[in-house]
Design a binder for these strands. Sequence first.
DNA 1: GTCTATAAATAGATAGAC
DNA 2: GTCTATCTATTTATAGAC
Lengths: 179, 179
Amino acid sequence: MAWDNEHKEKTRQRIVASAAKLFTQFGFDNIGINEIMADAGLTRGAFYAHFNTKSDLYAESIVAGAIMAAAQHIKEASVQDIVSGYLTKEHVAGTGQHCPLAFLTTDISQRDSQVRQAYTTVFNGLIKRLQKDGLHRSQAIKQAVLMIGGVAISRALDDNDLVEELLFACQQTEALDIL
Amino acid sequence: MAWDNEHKEKTRQRIVASAAKLFTQFGFDNIGINEIMADAGLTRGAFYAHFNTKSDLYAESIVAGAIMAAAQHIKEASVQDIVSGYLTKEHVAGTGQHCPLAFLTTDISQRDSQVRQAYTTVFNGLIKRLQKDGLHRSQAIKQAVLMIGGVAISRALDDNDLVEELLFACQQTEALDIL
DNA sequence: GTCTATAAATAGATAGAC
DNA sequence: GTCTATCTATTTATAGAC
């Protein structure tokens, strides 16, 4: 019984990891349960032994995806390192982990309360992290908007030069200069 | 013949206006051709006399939607007025025209090149408009990211107090103080 | 718990009458 | 040019075998 539970939990985590990867990359509507389960090495039918709806998995994958992305971007030493590491072409492109805050911004506003609560929790976490390094709260909020907005907009643009210019501009913050 | 063409063009404009309204509010995947045509007072079948694909209409509605939203937000006198008028709870909520730049940000990155080119064009227009009032180019870019990102993130958040705090913070820009 | 098979609903696109 | 009817494909979710 203990083994079964452990095995089920591991399978569940694998599904969530696949979901976080695929949802952030393609959005809620452009990925089916089928593809998520296939990525986790399972078939569609097994999904409902772990989750009730696609939306449930989405909410959970936002939190999980943020944790995975944070391991890559947020744990750096200084605020400037966090900002610079976040606003890169590699983050904008498909490589590595993607931050749900930036990759799913407008996608989230179409979903139910549960999903938007998950987004709010993750966003508050980023603000707190930025404040920890001495930024005033309003400065931290603005910097978070520049990070998230900068990456989100870059992904929509169809002009490489403009993207590079934008990413660079969003890294230059008056608030950081006076620290 | 002249009357026919004029009539067809008016119908087409009505479809685009309905599309701009509904797409910005609900995103590409959550609105069907059916609903757009119904909003324009027509049925689904008539769609293909005006457009080839749903994606074609989407690209066109982004440009049209930006023009309509600009009439509401961008034509104000000063940069500070533009920024303040854009970063409001009314803009974030469903009332009035919605700016595609902020309402469809991550939605756009899932679409084809034609759509992303339309987004890029509109974004460049905003930058130009902000530069016209004396902002340096990098300042204009950052301010645009704060506007678009601020509204986009606000729509995803599930916390009214936080939204108000965020909108206010994004209006306070060092670059504007020194003008 | 996972599989295959299938139900049920939705939506993009086409055909043909008017 | 617009309509109704239909084709075709996709997808969420369920049923039942193993």
